[in-house]
């Protein structure tokens, strides 16, 4: 059974249709990159998958939790879906460790000792084991983003969504976050990531999806998609879209 199954999803903001019938399947352990022009609906798609945006038609199923236009089952689904944004959005009033322990404790009802262990493991996974007691404000952008990743990991999600998580970072900090994501992929995490880092997508993603005008325009193994784009739109995007 696929971890994520998206079928015929349509999403409009007012009169503007942003997603025009999206079909997408993510199998366990797969890493799928989503690329495309600004405004093609990449972020909207990720936000729909964990129910931050409602959908008008179609269905989304994540590890057995079905989400439809009614919006029921939202919280159950979110327990299994981690999402990391371009802005890290750490909780500034809590230390790093508390940031990570909060949701396991209050949402999953995990005991204090186990929450702490989860937090330590997650921090180790992102290479920040020694920053447990730090305040978010005292960390660099790259470190904050890695804490945000750890905060999601501590929920033990079935799939992680990443929306341009390196776009707000200086080039020298981008590398450490990409390395963290690559390690997650190696450890078998199922991932769906929107990115402008084409080289990273090509190397790490098993599949790449090219979105265009609210549709999945082209999809395939990353090597083929980047190496031999089939549609003129993707050829043009790769020709001009590379940084």
């Amino acid at each position: 059974m696929p971890v994520v199954q998206v079928e015929g999803v349509r999403k409009s903001f007012g009169a503007v249709e942003v997603l025009k019938g999206i079909d997408l399947t993510v199998e366990r352990g797969e890493v799928i990159a989503i690329i495309g022009r600004s405004g093609s609906g990449k972020s909207t798609l990720l936000r729909c998958i964990n129910g931050l945006e409602g959908i008008q038609a179609g269905s989304i199923e994540v590890s057995g939790h079905k989400l439809d236009a009614s919006g029921r089952g939202l919280r159950e689904l979110r327990k299994d879906v981690g999402i990391v944004f371009q802005s890290y959005n750490l909780f500034p009033h809590l230390r790093v460790g508390e940031n990570i322990m909060l949701a396991p404790r209050v949402v999953l009802g995990v005991g204090k000792a186990e929450a702490r262990q989860r937090a330590e493991e997650a921090l180790a996974e992102v290479g920040l084991a020694e920053r447990f007691e730090a305040w978010p404000d005292n960390l660099s952008g790259g470190q904050q983003q890695r804490v945000a990743i750890a905060r999601s990991l501590a929920m033990k999600p079935k799939v992680m969504l990443f929306d341009e998580v390196t776009s707000a970072l200086d080039p020298e900090l981008t590398g450490e976050v990409l390395a963290t994501m690559e390690r997650l992929a190696e450890h078998g995490m199922t991932m769906l990531l929107v990115t402008h880092e084409m080289a990273f997508a090509r190397r790490v993603a098993t599949q790449t999806i090219f979105m265009h005008q609210g549709k999945v325009w082209e999809v395939g193994p990353s090597e083929r998609l980047f190496g031999a784009p089939q549609t003129p739109e993707l050829r043009q995007f790769l020709g001009t879209g590379l940084k």
Partner: peptide, 27 residues
């Protein structure tokens, strides 16, 4: 309080009451 704080806590599957109690009101 920044709206992203609502979003980040919602994405962690917190209920509205939990968002207020642990994330929004302390700030």
């Amino acid at each position: 309080v920044a709206w992203q704080q609502w979003e980040a806590s919602a994405a962690l599957a917190m209920s509205r009451a939990q968002q207020y109690r642990y994330v929004i009101l302390p700030q």
